[in-house]
Structures are given as structure tokens and as C-alpha cells.
Design a binder for these strands. Structure first.
Length: 375
DNA sequence: CCTCACTTTCCTGGTT
DNA sequence: GAACCAGGAAAGTGAG
């Protein structure tokens, strides 16, 4: 259940950090989750007393739960004197474990029904985010960590600004991800073939080093054996100049066992019938529908029409590669996959505009009505 | 084991 | 010349 929690944290963290007009950021807020007061003060989007609409109930603190209860006590004109505060000392996860009977037992029929209905509504609302989005959030989290940015899941509200200052983090909208590459890294085993720059005109030497994603996942700096292309199927070709060169065969090299890799994907692997991995277009969509999370990677050109643009194409490609455990993913390859969506009408062509795509009639989940931008 | 959908990789040629 | 776009071809992956 980290996704919705992370999503709310992300949302507020970004609001706190990037809205320069907000001057009353609380520097010493002790809670990981924003306090009710902080939310009310720092975000005009939240009307007082309605903060819980924007936070996953599973992420509510005991204080949050108490606030939620008292809000309902007020609206139902319930006699709060009959309530024991001891019943209200549970946090969000504990609250979410309760069924209707238990809630009624604790809060009585009148208030209990009201609370249960409200709770179910909030739970349902945040469950819509789905596991794919959770993964995307995890990737974004890793991505930000890679940028020496305070992990969103660890940001304490109000401390973000301080953290940014301490780390001298210089994130701006025009942040150049490609400049973050530590070393131009030849994909493992690629020395068997031509280097990226040799065999592909589109591969850029300054590509964002996704190996840092790998190290985040594996917990070590060691190379992921999965990306060791076996030294087979070498093809010698003659260039125009006549020299014999090694050329990679067409198609993708076979994957090696993932036995020794540990990652956030392990859970998925353990499932009997793992759901098909998130499709590329869904991955893109998930980044887009939460612009406050995408850190300037992509943006809507025309949300109503489904037109969007890559701002950091290589960075998005690296994130996709990270998700698919493929350190050699590039925008060139990603865009090829995108173009295949034209045929299936998941994407529509946008002529004459670079890095601009449009969702087609066979895509879903991005429309303003679908994602409820009013929240 | 096979099929199929999806994705990745390579490539050539064109455009911005 | 670099970056991007378009799309054919071949092949890997995983679900069913």
C-alpha cells in the first residue's frame, strides 16, 4: 500500500517545495504525514475539515483519524460526549481493518454507519490507483533518490525545503538529466559487440546512467548479470570502408536468469499468475496523470485531447528501462514501441511535432473525467 | 510445446 | 551533425 501513501506525500511535498508563493512552510513538522494544520495552511486546494479526501486512509495517523471522526461527529450532530477517546486512538491502518460491525460496535449505529460509508468511499477512491501506479511511484522515488533528492517516502513535510538547501539540490524544471551520468557506461557484455555509439546513431554517450537504478534495487554496486549479453551470434560485417567489424545480431539478446537479482519486482515474480507487466502506454499515462510527480519528465500539451510531450525523453526511457530491468533502454527504442501503438490506436499520430504524442481511442485512464481532476 | 501479444533491438532513410 | 521520426524486420518474453 505504499503507492497511495507515496502519492499523497509526493503531492504535498511537491506543493511544499515548488510553490514559491507558499511562505509558511513548517520547518519542524515531526510527522511524516502532513498535519491537518499544515495542510490547511499550506495548500489552498484543501478546504478546512476536508483534508482526508486527499489522503489514503491507510496513511492516516491517529491524529488524522481523530480529526476525521470529529469532522463526522460535527456533521452528524452526534453527541460526542458518549464517545470514549480511547476508541479514537487508532491510526489509519487499524481503522481500515475494521468492518462495519466493529465500527458500529465502537461508534454506535448512527455515527458508525456514517463513518463506515465515508471510510469505504475513501478506501475505494485510493484503491483506483492500482498496483501499476504503485510501481511507477516506486520508480519515481528511486529516480529522485538517484538525483540526491530526499526520498519522497521519507520527506517530512516542511523539512523538504531545508533538505533541499542542505543538499544543495538544484532541481529546476530545466534540469538536465543527461548531465547526471556518472560515467558513460557500456552495457555489460557489450564490449563483445560494438559500443553503443558505434552501432547506433541514436544512442547518446551521455545517457542517464540507469545502473544507479539497479544498484538501488539490488542494494549493491555490482552489475546486474541480467544485462550480460552472452557472447554468441556475433556477426562480422564489412563496412563501406572495407574493415571487418563486429555487429550485434538483430533482435534482443536472451535474458539470463534473474535468480540472483533482488528487486521490487520480486513480489510480482512470486505470484502464481503474475499480471502482465504494465504496458508502456500505461507507464507513460501514470506519469502524466500525476504531473506533480513526474518532475518535469513529461507534460500535457492538451489534456482534454490527450496530447502530451516528452520533456526529458531519455530520462523517461531510463525509467522505463528500470521498470523492465533493461539498462540499455533508450528513447529511440521507447519511441519505436510508442509508434507500434499507432496501429492499435492506443496512440494517435501527431504530425510535425517532436516528442509529442496523443492518446488514442483504445487507451484509457487519462481523461480528466476518468481521473477526477477535481480532487 | 505452441501460439500470440507485446516489446526490444537493429536498421535505413527522411525530417527538423 | 545531432536529435528525432517512421516503419520494416527479426527476435525475446511471458501469459494462456
Amino acid at each position: 500500500m505504499s503507492s497511495p501513501c507515496l502519492s499523497s506525500i509526493l503531492t504535498h511535498a511537491n506543493r511544499t517545495m515548488y510553490q514559491t508563493g507558499i511562505a509558511d512552510v513548517r520547518p519542524q513538522q515531526p510527522s511524516v504525514l502532513p498535519s491537518i494544520n499544515t495542510l490547511q495552511i499550506s495548500s489552498s486546494a484543501y478546504s478546512p475539515g476536508q483534508w482526508y479526501r486527499h489522503i489514503n486512509p491507510y496513511c492516516w495517523t491517529a491524529d488524522n483519524v481523530l480529526e476525521w471522526i470529529s469532522d463526522h461527529v460535527e456533521t452528524t450532530k452526534f453527541d460526542a460526549s458518549t464517545l470514549s477517546l480511547a476508541y479514537c486512538a487508532m491510526d489509519g491502518p487499524a481503522l481500515c481493518q475494521m468492518n462495519l460491525e466493529e465500527i458500529i460496535l465502537v461508534f454506535g449505529t448512527q455515527l458508525g454507519l456514517h463513518l463506515h460509508q465515508s471510510l469505504e468511499e475513501h478506501k475505494t477512491k485510493f484503491e483506483l490507483s492500482g498496483p501499476e501506479l504503485s510501481e511507477t511511484c516506486q520508480l519515481l522515488d528511486n529516480f529522485l533518490d538517484n538525483l540526491n533528492f530526499p526520498l519522497l517516502s521519507t520527506i517530512k513535510f516542511g523539512e523538504a525545503e531545508e533538505a533541499v538547501n542542505k543538499r544543495e539540490f538544484e532541481y529546476r524544471d530545466d534540469c538536465n538529466f543527461t548531465s547526471l551520468a556518472v560515467e558513460p557506461k557500456t552495457p555489460l557484455g557489450d564490449s563483445e559487440y560494438l559500443s553503443d555509439s558505434e552501432y547506433s546513431s541514436s544512442s547518446n554517450s551521455g545517457t542517464f546512467d540507469s545502473s544507479s537504478f539497479d544498484s538501488l534495487e539490488s542494494g549493491s554496486g555490482e552489475s546486474d548479470p541480467e544485462f550480460c549479453y552472452p557472447p554468441i551470434s556475433k556477426v562480422h560485417i564489412k563496412t563501406e570502408k572495407g574493415e571487418s567489424r563486429l555487429k550485434r545480431p538483430r533482435g534482443r539478446p536472451p535474458k539470463l536468469s534473474r535468480e540472483h537479482t533482488s528487486s521490487i519486482y520480486d513480489n510480482q515474480k512470486k505470484k502464481k499468475h503474475a499480471p502482465r507487466g504494465t504496458h508502456l502506454w500505461e507507464f507513460i499515462r501514470d506519469i502524466l496523470i500525476h504531473p506533480e510527480r513526474n518532475q518535469g519528465l513529461m507534460k500535457w500539451e492538451d489534456h482534454r485531447e490527450g496530447v502530451f510531450k516528452f520533456l526529458k525523453s531519455e530520462a523517461v526511457a531510463q525509467m522505463w528501462g528500470q521498470k523492465k530491468k533493461n539498462s540499455s533502454m533508450t528513447y529511440e527504442k521507447l519511441s519505436r514501441a510508442m509508434r507500434y501503438y499507432y496501429k492499435r490506436e492506443i496512440l494517435d499520430r501527431v504530425d510535425g511535432r517532436r516528442l509529442v504524442y496523443k492518446f488514442g481511442k483504445n487507451s484509457s485512464g487519462w481523461k480528466i473525467e476518468e481521473i477526477g481532476m477535481g480532487m
